[in-house]
Amino acid sequence: MSQAMKLVELAETAPADAMNALTIRLDDELFAVEAHHVREILELVPITEVPNAPEFVGGLINVRGRVVPLADLRVMFGMNRAEPDEDTRIVVMEVDMDGEPAIVGILADKVHDVTDIEAASIEEAPKVGMRWRPEFIKGIGKRNGGFIIIPNMERIFEISGARTAPVAASEERSAS
């Protein structure tokens, strides 16, 4: 909790023309998520597998008495999914899902720090030459000569929500 509080404080002191972001590592890429969406960062907790759920949101975790879906962005970005180790964390975030705020957990191979990414340094994702689907990326920032990927959370969760729909329909058919 104290870590989350610190994040909020930092977020409030951020300069207006910069994005205050939490940087996390997925596979071998650095990602930045908006700090004010982050509620807390948890060590790895027991994950309950949801049978027949999409791979992207295959689990549930208990966050202070709340049942929260656990998403693995690595699935969406087609990344290598390493087994969790001592660096693995769960970032609990508030995201917009079909216009309603929802709490989700996101697996991170490692959580780095909270930083300001200057708005000027953020560029639009190139339409070609990327191994990821461009609609999942809001932009690419630069820091210390390296790139930071800023994922488009709303879009990612919207897509995954839509993806479960066909599963539901086929289940319903088989049930009746």
Partner: peptide
Amino acid sequence: LSKLHSGIKS
């Protein structure tokens, strides 16, 4: 269950 899992009827 959240919307992400509402499609799973079991």
